[in-house]
Design a binder for these strands. Structure first.
Lengths: 154, 154
DNA sequence: ACATGATGGACAATCTGGTTGACTATATCG
DNA sequence: CGATATAGTCAACCAGATTGTCCATCATGT
């Protein structure tokens, strides 16, 4: 083999996974045991002003039905709530609850802590360089986290 | 918000995804249109000497039945073949075919090319630093790519 | 004002890939 | 030899996605 290029994607994935796993371990300790990796991304996509199932589906790159099911799941856990839109009675606005916002706030703080650990290990200089390099190599940042299905599909 | 820590995992994921997508676009051009992200990982796990469904399941962190179905899918595409083990008639050895090995070899070359592009953009120094830093922050080596299921699970 | 078309949401059927459980055949070990 | 463990397969089920269909409601153009 002796392919140097194999390591890069593998390490990127491992690093991502490690951060996410540590995030959720800590979230569980802080009163959010039901939070799943998917939830954070979806709640970010919902945003502070709320959204609708159709719009959410477009943002996430999945069908509106799939988005609807995801919203149902988040509703069951208590992270979002649905309300009618007075200006368009077809629409049902999906909004984050206080509990959901708490999950997001805690996630942010935990990610900061994890980043601080990286800075501690690597040095702030090196970490800034790493972030800058990743920023340089990745697309500006459109969401489109259609991870489910993307990796799978044999 | 102003959470600096949010960016790191997101960029790691985007970078990983970008590399994998580019890999598969190029693989499709090179005669492997059926190759899916999962396949490369599974074929790596199978290794040059072959393995069995049970063993593969343990390596990948899934049930032996799931591993069996995955092997079936790879067999349909022509990446692996199954043969009886003369020394233990219960076992069926799963081996990479020439076509499967070709896919792995091409993957390695394409990853090298992609890495070269990164080196071109960032400079070899910076890329080496990035790889070194990721190596430092991620666990030594465990496979255990039980991605399916891990991210999902609402 | 109203017919037409577009949009939001829900329901149902299906597909895929995972799970557990049960079963058979074969090894291995006391 | 008999008891236990292991490899593989079959079957049933579950979760999360898909498409297709339907209905209610908005928006538009004549």
């Amino acid at each position: 083999m002796s392919s140097q290029g194999f390591e890069l994607p593998l390490r990127l994935l491992l690093a991502f996974r490690m951060l996410i796993d540590e995030l959720h371990a800590e979230l569980a300790r802080q009163g959010h045991p039901h939070m799943r990796p998917m939830h954070g991304f979806v709640m970010q996509a919902i945003g502070p002003d709320g959204t609708t199932a159709v719009e959410l589906g477009r943002t996430l790159g999945v069908s509106k039905q799939a988005a609807g099911k995801t919203v149902e799941a988040l509703e069951r856990v208590g992270y979002v709530e649905r309300a009618a839109d007075p200006r368009d009675t077809r629409r049902k606005i999906v909004r984050l609850t206080a509990y959901g916002i708490d999950a997001l706030n805690r996630s942010a703080r935990i990610f900061d802590t994890l980043r601080a650990r990286w800075a501690d290990e690597l040095g702030e200089e090196r970490l800034l360089a790493l972030e800058s390099d990743l920023r340089k190599m990745t697309p500006a940042s459109p969401w489109r986290l259609d991870i489910p299905g993307w990796f799978g599909t044999l």
